[in-house]
């Protein structure tokens, strides 16, 4: 199949827009999903602690 300039324009101006909007919504839902909050807080705090050796 030939992908010519016109097809590229149509895809960019239609699908491209909605795909990025969907992606943004997906990321925001994941980030603000209430049950993820504690996991994020723990992740941020855990790296501060000293770790001398791998866990077994």
């Amino acid at each position: 199949m030939d992908i010519d300039h016109n097809i590229a324009v149509v895809v960019a101006k239609s699908f491209g827009l909605f795909y990025l909007i969907a992606l943004s919504i997906g990321v925001l839902v994941y980030v603000y999903w209430p049950s993820n909050g504690k996991r994020f807080d723990d992740a941020a705090k855990n790296v501060i602690h000293d770790e001398d050796a791998p866990w077994h």
Binding site: V27, F40, D41, A44
Partner: peptide, 10 residues
């Protein structure tokens, strides 16, 4: 800890 972990993901 990083000010906002959420913001880092966004």
């Amino acid at each position: 800890p990083i000010f906002s972990y959420r913001m880092s993901i966004i």
